[in-house]
Amino acid sequence: MSSPENKATSYAIIGFGKIGKALGKAFARNGINVSVATTRNPESFESEAAAIGPEIIATTLTEAVKADVIFLAVRFEAHAEVAKALPNWEAKIIVDVTNAYGVPPEKTDGLPSASFVARSFEGGKLVKGFNHLIAAILEQNPAVNGGQRVVFLASDDDNAATEVGTLAAKLGFAPIQLGKLAEGGLLVQPRGNSWGKLIFQDLVKFDK
Rank of each mutant, 00 (worst) to 15 (best):
A64G: 00
S115F: 05
V97S: 05
A49R: 09
S115D: 14
T60C: 01
A114T: 14
P42T: 08
Y101G: 00
H132F: 07
W89V: 10
A64P: 01
P42Q: 09
V36A: 04
G129M: 11
E43G: 04
E48H: 14
P54N: 14
S35I: 07
T98G: 05
A83F: 06
F121P: 00
S47G: 04
N41T: 07
E43R: 11
V65E: 04
T60M: 02
S115R: 15
A50N: 11
Y101N: 00
L133K: 03
V95N: 04
F71Y: 09
K128D: 03
E122S: 14
S35D: 10
P42N: 08
V103D: 03
E48K: 14
P87N: 15
G124A: 13
G129H: 11
K84F: 00
R119F: 00
A50P: 02
L86K: 10
I93L: 00
L126Y: 08
A100T: 05
A51G: 01
A118T: 00
H79V: 04
V82W: 06
T98I: 11
I134L: 01
P112N: 08
E55R: 02
F76K: 06
V127C: 13
V97G: 02
A64R: 03
L126A: 10
V36G: 02
A64T: 04
S44C: 06
D68P: 02
G124I: 09
N88Q: 14
R40K: 11
T38N: 08
I56Y: 05
G129E: 12
W89Y: 09
V82S: 07
G123F: 05
